[in-house]
């Protein structure tokens, strides 16, 4: 399966061709601490247990708290 991932922290888009079950596994694959990000699947915020399927687009956004 193919998943398109946008990592906001690095303004980087990656295409991952690998079977990945859910967002949690994807974050593990990318070595990103799930606590420091919020994630969206196909333009909707999703919890890290959200399942992934072929063609999904995932956005990994930093948790921003600066004012």
């Amino acid at each position: 399966m193919t998943i398109k991932v946008f990592i906001e922290r690095y303004n980087e888009t990656k295409v991952i061709e690998k079977n990945i079950k859910d967002i949690n596994s994807l974050l593990k694959e990318l070595s990103i601490n799930p606590e420091t990000v919020v994630t969206a699947r196909n333009n909707e915020l999703a919890t890290t247990d959200a399942k992934l399927k072929d063609g999904d687009e995932v956005r990994i956004l930093s948790v921003i708290s600066g004012g």
Binding site: E35, T36, V38, V63, I64, S65, G66
Partner: peptide
């Protein structure tokens, strides 16, 4: 609902704005 498990390590360092 969105940020319940969040921590933000980034703002506190020298990321800048």
């Amino acid at each position: 609902c969105i940020f319940n498990k969040s921590s933000s390590n980034e703002t506190c360092d020298t990321s800048g704005v």
